[in-house]
Design a protein around this nucleic acid. Structure first.
Lengths: 190, 190
DNA sequence: TTTAAAAACGAATATTTATTCGTTTTTATT
DNA sequence: AATAAAAACGAATAAATATTCGTTTTTAAA
């Protein structure tokens, strides 16, 4: 008996991520996807029961991988600034190395497919745990402004740094990263 | 002879911006749009010759309004920090008041429609003129790092502030805005 | 090596969505 | 008021796209 081909499934997943990166979520066509994978459209239905299922399954997988990635480092017992930088760098590497996947997540989120999804999946907003920020505040190392604001400062600095790297304005070397982290630190430090 | 109804055209434009905000660019359906405007689908073709024409015309209009908005303030003869803040605030008000339109622009940009557009329209990247940054550097008020980096710092702070306001985490009052501008200034000041 | 179950195919069909077209209604102009 | 030109309508058509189905091929297990 012939079994499902895991590599083929991976290929489907990879190609759709590419297509969304190049043409946007509105540009996903089953036929086009099938061609790029090298199978005929009907074969896609062996692996996913519909286009919606295809997109939402992949979305869900990517989101859980993504949250998985950040459960570790959060409990290290090192000075706050260092810990922040470590996590910051980890996030950065991840999003630079997975920029197409991140883009896929972002685009599905603002598409009509999103409606059909149980909402708790929408990414457990813990990307950079609020705990970390609370820790910095407790030690009086960072400004005493609302958590949501600090959280968003970190997030937006990360997004910006990622964009600059993908844009080839910066690279992931120590000098550039020190600079970008300093921007963040200068902005949030007390 | 019956004339085209300018208000109807405006209604079309407004509704499509709403739809894109709610469902994403992939969620735009001529019939749905027509219903929301209160006409039948064929009437849309009186005002635009196709769906593509509809989307791209509106996109082009919005982009030119948007760039228009920022040709003024750039030449004021006041201290650098003050000027930066003034422009920063102007941009902020604009993007808070036109967030759906901004979203429309952003989404069309990452959609397949974009391919069909003469590229010079893509928004004359002068949002916050590089001249301004050059001025601050000349006066040795801001850090001596690549322009692209500084530019992106300003841009990303603006985006972040806008998001926080729309999220009701902040409002457009003096206290909150001073705080957010201080984040930016602390990050870029020498 | 045979077998049987499922993958893969590709043509056919269904569905969704954009667009056209003949007719009716509206309204500026006379 | 009468007219004529264009808007607006809505049903019909066209186009694009997703999905199904009957058949063939592959392959794990017997």
């Amino acid at each position: 008996m012939k079994l499902k081909d895991a590599e083929k499934k991976d290929a489907i997943n990879a190609k759709i991520v590419d297509i969304v990166y190049e043409k946007g979520i509105a540009g996903v066509k089953m036929m086009d996807l099938a061609c790029k994978v090298g199978v005929c459209p009907s074969t896609l239905y062996v692996y996913y029961k519909s286009k919606e299922d295809l997109i939402l399954s992949i979305f869900t997988d990517l989101v859980s991988n993504h949250t998985e990635e950040f459960r570790s480092n959060l409990v290290l017992d090192i000075p706050f600034k260092l810990k922040l930088k470590k996590i910051w760098l980890q996030w950065l590497h991840f999003s630079v190395n997975n920029f197409k996947e991140m883009n896929f997540i972002q685009q599905v989120k603002q598409s009509p497919y999103m409606d059909k999804l149980p909402k708790e999946i929408t990414e457990g907003k813990l990307q950079l745990s609020t705990d970390l920020i609370a820790e910095g505040k407790r030690q009086q190392l960072i400004k005493d402004v609302p958590n949501a604001v600090l959280f968003s400062l970190v997030e937006s600095n990360l997004k910006q740094t990622t964009e600059l790297i993908l844009d080839k304005q910066l690279s992931l070397n120590e000098k550039d990263m020190d600079m970008m982290f300093t921007f963040l630190w200068d902005a949030i430090k007390r």
